[in-house]
Amino acid sequence: MLEIKNLHVKLEEEDKQILKGVDLTVEPGKVHAIMGPNGSGKSTLSYVLSGKDGYEVTDGEASLLGEDILDMEPEERAAAGLFLAFQYPVEIPGVGNMTFLRTAVNSQRKSRGEEEMSAADFLKEVRAKAKTLKIDADMLKRPVNVGFSGGEKKRNEILQMAMLEPKMCILDETDSGLDVDAMKLVSDGVNALRDEGRSFLVITHYQRLLDHIKPDVVHIMANGRIIKTGGPELALEVEQNGYADLLEENA
């Protein structure tokens, strides 16, 4: 599904290398988790993959379903099946949540040469999916993320994911700012989307999210590299001992 080879990335504005050779392969239907200390490059990885400005790829490659994505525009990557659930979803005053979602769904369909969704079908589907995420009609009507609580913003991310039906979902610290109930709601939303044709890359600081979204593979990232890969037990190990031992092993 997602294949990253020897990815090197630096900040455009300053000569600072953030990713120093990331290798990662996520197979179809699998859930991979990336854990790591602050500043290890986890969020940078998610931004670079989704095409945010401000980063320069100095070496390596990344492909989605065999297609090189690094030269694509962000919207092309989205249409190709990539989805980033933002750590900090952006508030956009003046743009209605529904308008935004429908424009996104139909833009992707159009770019893939598929028929656009009718207003009626869209409404029906968005209402049904919103209901399972406990997103009420008022939230759908409001401008994108404006006045949403932290939990509402994250639920809105998952609603977008559910509507766009991407193949490769990257969740960037989706657990940050969530209370226990909200975390369960969001996790249930994600788990409902697990499918043999859909993969997940879950970026998190804490093991507790992985109690809800059970990963197949866990990677530890530090200093711009993946330094260790293992099963779910690796997350438990980090939870108990912290990153210090692992970092020392790799020093």
Binding site: E75, I92, G94, V95, F100, S107, S111
Partner: peptide
């Protein structure tokens, strides 16, 4: 707003349409 623009594009909205949405919002 660049962040808003990126957010819209990351959901598959093409740049020009994303810009238009931001203009209408403005």
């Amino acid at each position: 707003d660049d962040d808003a623009l990126f957010y819209l594009r990351a959901r598959g909205v093409p740049l020009e349409i994303a810009q238009d949405l931001m203009v209408i919002a403005f």
